[in-house]
Amino acid sequence: MFDLIKVTLRQRRIALIAYSLGGLAMIWLYVSIYPSMQAQIGDYTKLIESMPKGLMKAFGADAVTNNFEGLIGTKLFGFVWPLIMLFLTVSFSCSAIAGEIEKTSMGLWLSAPISRLKIYWSKYIAVGLALTVFMVLTVLAVLPMAGLYNIDVSSKHIMLLSIVAGLFALAVTGLTFLASSLFSEKSRVYAVVGAGLLVMYAINLLASLSDKFVNLKYASFFYYYNSNDLLSGRPINRASLLVFGTAAVLGALGGAIVFRRRDISI
């Protein structure tokens, strides 16, 4: 099993390093510009407050605080980080199964004396490990980097963010593995998962802009991931844990069942 995991990780190592360094660079950027931004934070808050509340809520900037956690909660973990995480998660999960089928290299695995479930779970664990590395380097790394610039950050808040962000990533991983097991072409997986995430994002946006559609927010992953709330010390929304956990488990198990039973014409 270890060898199988190693091979999958090896296939994605350059991309993993690139994504992680990108995330790390973003943290460094925010940490390094924060001291100069701090001087202008009053003007920034006024600017935010002058904008329509609905619009700010839609972009997750409704809970801006005058501290570093408020800044990264809105700017970094509210938009840029989820985007990088989604690209990494979807591309890795997509390549793990559908990508291997499309390239026909899955034949090397299938013709070996290992079960399909072992193949599937080794690839899932490999993507999970890649995500763990990414999380450590792009979320938990906030703590030592902020420390270097003498910026106060609550380690508890960062840990809570890590848990919810990690579950969010696992939920997307599970569902992408399901799609990756269903289809034999990466483009179809990207289309289905990408469309699903876009619809969820649009639903969340719509729900925050109009009271008429407010209940639609429950159908969106983006509603359950609120970095601002977590970094401002609000407790974890249990519904977030439940929704992300359920999607992660059902997606991963569904993918395993599909992959074990499906025809792979290579």
């Binding site: 296939q11 390239k103 026909t104 290299s105 034949g107 090397l108 013709s111």
Partner: peptide
Amino acid sequence: YLPASEQYY
């Protein structure tokens, strides 16, 4: 097993 189409990295 030798496949008809190559299955390599």
